[in-house]
């Protein structure tokens, strides 16, 4: 790839530039910063569609009383049950139980605090979900 062929397209890097290797005029491969590439934007969006869908599904389930807010917050941290369990220091089977509204409602403050800490949110946030769609998948 030639240096002038390194894509400088609108992308996902938020003003950052990514280092690519490409050929200068003498044919030598050197670092050429890239503003972004449409290809990376397309494949990046593909994963986010999937993640956002799963977060929104969780939000709906919480609103319908089928799941606890923990499910929503776990998904919006892009976590699986096993990752949340390891992060909070709770057995996986207990995390699974706490994804249901009933068992979640009976959690004590200490347990809620552990989940909130693991997710990087406050206990108040942990107890609720947003009223409107619009997934947020990072802190």
């Amino acid at each position: 790839m030639k240096a002038k062929e390194v894509p400088q397209e609108d992308s996902i890097l938020e003003g950052n530039r990514r280092a690519c290797y490409a050929q200068d005029e003498t044919g030598k491969y050197v670092v050429v910063p890239s503003r972004g590439w449409e290809v990376e934007k397309i494949i990046n969006a593909q994963t986010h569609v999937e993640i956002d869908r799963s977060i929104e599904e969780a939000r709906q389930e919480v609103m319908n009383g089928a799941a606890s807010p923990l499910l929503y917050h776990m998904r919006s941290r892009q976590m699986t049950v096993s990752l949340l369990a390891a992060t909070a220091g709770v057995w996986s089977w207990r995390v699974k139980r706490h994804l249901k509204p009933g068992p979640f409602a009976s959690l004590d403050g200490a347990m809620l605090g552990r989940y909130a800490e693991a997710l990087g949110i406050s206990v108040e946030e942990l107890n609720t979900v947003p009223a409107e769609p619009g997934a947020k998948r990072t802190p």
């Binding site: 790839m1 390194v6 990514r18 280092a19 690519c20 290797y21 490409a22 491969y29 670092v31 590439w37 290809v39 990376e40 494949i43 990046n44 593909q46 994963t47």
Partner: peptide, 17 residues
């Protein structure tokens, strides 16, 4: 494609590097 281009590889899945 993501493993090839999105994860910092310098382009073409490290082939250019």
């Amino acid at each position: 494609v993501r493993m090839q281009e999105e994860i910092g590889t310098g382009g073409a899945g490290f082939r250019f590097m």
